[in-house]
Design a protein around this nucleic acid. Structure first.
Lengths: 245, 245
DNA sequence: ATACAAGCACTGCCATACTAGTGTGTCAAT
DNA sequence: ATTGACACACTAGTATGGCAGTGCTTGTAT
């Protein structure tokens, strides 16, 4: 028996588990499943038309990303937005992306710059259309491309798990009237500095951009405190349903 | 129903899964289970005196850390040492630890320095005794303490998953006659620079230290090529047993 | 001796039964 | 009306059965 492998053998995208996992992760980071919502293995299995096993295994993985919290014999809940945790995720992301950007300055080509600017142009369109989901998709492509310019695209996976958390907070910002234009402007600053091979300025601009999430988060917390963890003892009801309204 | 939570509710250390997971991880990073070894859910369940479920769930988590590779309907194998992967893990670790060290310079106290130097002293003892396992345990405490001085102890979890890979490579170095003294010397350099609040020097020293793994790895690969992935197609036999001899 | 083919033993995946533990709703006692 | 206790419904954790898919082995024909 021989097994041909290379790349990522782990994700047969047609398996019940990977489908379940992707669905759940998407619903959580897009806030379709609000923080605090209780997730029952049985209910999810029914509604996703599968059995408990793939659901359970997905929840274990989501728990690793701290997107859900599992309390044995009690229940599983979509994690509340935890500012401590957001801060930590932001630190990790900033460390990785800035380190990569530092390498990127020496490696960036004209094609790279063209490609990055093309993404920016598309983002400006979403700004007009007000399509938040599309904006996020392009934002992801932008940052991923930035990593690959630095020669560290493989670190994307690590950024992803930190990002998942941040994205929920960032989505709340955008819902809550932060103009997309601010972010696109910051992206532009980064690309401009990169174009002039100015590492310090580029890293500074990236830092400002990545830290933008902090500017809104306290205000948002004041508006929708029930979506936030107070960092101390948390008490959740089994049948609590949290909404964005 | 109310659930009291705080900290890490996820790890009831007495559960079958967490026991299984810890045992397997330990055996893999200490090379007790050599890279390439085939792991059967059934056999592991028997030998760990539990059922297939906790074993399977543990393997899924280890797969996330890339410590094992799962090939559906074929088998699960302890990952070969993949230099590409080691490089990536090193990059992530370096980014996080250096960023934290940069903050640490402004925060470090005399108690911190005393505590760090105490770890160094203990490491020198293990050097004489030749106790590799104890050395690694102290190494972990050192780096963790360094993170906490920077105010980023919570990023330790992220470092851990990158570290797991690196540790296998580093263990191979130590088995293969790299003197522990080199590493302790590098630790000392870091603490000295930290003591004089010299961020640039400290970060430089940390960088040298973290990159030491690269100095040995190619030589080790030449010595024990069957423990390494060639990065291309991998073919593993179901009953292959890899050893360190 | 070699080549080939069919059966077999084994894999991980998924579904489900069972267990131990938890909060809640109900009903009784006061 | 209030309180308390107890049964119940529901939880995640664990165990196990069945499945489709894979490579190895063995037997057979050449």
């Amino acid at each position: 028996m021989t097994a041909s492998s290379s790349g990522s053998p782990k994700a047969p995208s047609h398996s019940a588990r990977s489908r379940t996992l992707e669905t759940l992760r998407r619903k959580i980071v897009t806030l379709e499943l609000a923080p605090g919502t209780s997730l029952s293995e049985n209910e999810l299995a029914q509604s996703l038309d599968t059995s408990r096993t793939p659901v359970r295994e997905s929840l274990i993985l989501l728990q690793q990303e701290a997107l859900v919290q599992v309390f044995p014999q009690i229940g599983t809940f979509v994690s509340l937005v935890d500012i401590e945790r957001v801060t930590q995720a932001q630190f990790i992301r900033e460390a990785i992306e800035c380190a990569s950007l530092n390498d990127a300055v020496a490696r960036v080509t004209e094609e790279d710059l063209t490609s990055l600017r093309s993404i920016l142009a598309q983002q400006e369109v979403t700004e007009i259309e007000g399509d938040v989901e599309k904006f996020f998709a392009l934002d992801e492509r932008f940052h991923r491309k930035l990593l690959s310019v630095g020669g560290h695209e493989s670190a994307w996976a690590a950024v992803t798990s930190a990002k998942a958390h941040l994205d929920r907070a960032r989505r709340l910002s955008l819902i809550d009237t932060r103009p997309i234009s601010t972010l696109v402007g910051q992206h532009t600053d980064i690309v401009d500095a990169l174009a002039s091979r100015d590492a310090a300025t580029a890293i500074g601009a990236l830092r400002v951009h990545l830290r933008a999430v902090f500017e809104d988060i306290e205000r948002i917390r004041a508006a929708v405190p029930h979506l936030f963890s107070d960092g101390r003892t948390v008490r959740l009801n089994r049948r609590t349903v949290h909404t964005l309204d």
